[in-house]
Amino acid sequence: MPTYFDFDVPRNLTVTVGQTGFLHCRVEGLGDKDVSWIRKRDLHILTVGVSTYTSDQRFQVIRAENSPNWTLQIKYPQPRDSGVYECQVNSEPKMSLSYFFNVVELKANISGTPDLYVKSGSDINLTCRIPQGPHELGNIFWYKGNEIIDTAVNQNELDSNRGITVENDWLDGLTSRLKIRRASSNDTGNYTCVPTIAKSASVYVHVIIGEHPAAMQHNSAGSNSRTRSGSQVGILLLGCLQLILVQFKWSIYFHRQTCEGPDYR
């Protein structure tokens, strides 16, 4: 029976960082030949048969007894593991089949700037989003500081005019919205959205009483403008004083020339 690859298997796999990847190679009519897995970028032999030929123990072949399936398992993959892998058979001539393995790092993103200023009594609205990934995106949990925000607990503790709600939707990715009604100074702090399969994101919320920081920045700008104006007036006065001193010196000189006459010595 001739040896051949079964091409009816996925050969383009995308996983997220930390998600175990499986590359399935099915060889029919293998006989007494061996199957090897090779990393194409450096031609490093990862496995031969069911034996691992690399010190990186994240790589391993999974094969049931007498099965034509030789599956390369890659644990805890990182972006550096992305690339082409080859399933090879030591036939004559050599047979090989390429697989494309892609490792992506999903990151959560909170809309807006790293610092959010909210007036006391207003609502805090935070939106955290993860773009569409290669598989189910899991869930997002919200933290204030090191404490998880449990909406059920918070609803019981707050009065009827306040509340904390979290809404998730999985339309075109995963989006989570945290809303805190009628914010008070106690709501100031660092808020973090923590996804189950992506890197977290944070924002610092400042609940302020009175003037908004934008107004303070405006006043600061006015103060700087007044400072610049004062500096310009000071330079003008100094110039006038220097001119008066020069005129005074020339006045003394001409007075001496008139009273004493020219000196021809």
Rank of each mutant, 00 (worst) to 15 (best):
N186I: 13
A183D: 11
D187N: 12
S184H: 00
I197H: 14
A198T: 05
H206E: 10
P195D: 05
V194T: 11
S184D: 01
I209K: 04
K179S: 15
Y191N: 07
N186F: 10
Y191L: 07
P195N: 07
I180T: 11
A183V: 08
T196R: 01
K179Y: 10
S202K: 06
D187M: 04
A201V: 05
A198W: 01
V205A: 07
R182N: 15
K199F: 10
I209Q: 11
Y191C: 09
G189T: 04
S202I: 03
K179M: 13
R182Q: 15
S202H: 05
R182I: 12
I180V: 13
S200A: 12
A183P: 12
A183F: 02
I208H: 07
V205P: 07
I208Y: 12
V194H: 13
S200I: 03
A201K: 00
S185G: 06
S200H: 05
I208R: 00
T192I: 06
I208T: 11
R181K: 15
A198E: 03
H206A: 09
A198Y: 01
S185Q: 10
A201H: 03
K199L: 13
S202E: 08
S184E: 04
R182M: 14
I180A: 14
G189E: 00
Y204S: 14
S202Y: 03
T192V: 09
I208D: 01
N190C: 04
S185K: 07
R181I: 14
T188Y: 07
D187W: 07
I180G: 10
Y204Q: 11
K179T: 15
T192C: 10
T192R: 09
S185N: 08
Y204T: 15
V207Q: 06
A198Q: 00
H206L: 09
S185A: 13
S184T: 08
N190Y: 01
V205D: 08
C193D: 10
V203A: 03
N186S: 14
V194F: 09
Y191S: 09
S185L: 10
P195F: 02
Y204R: 14
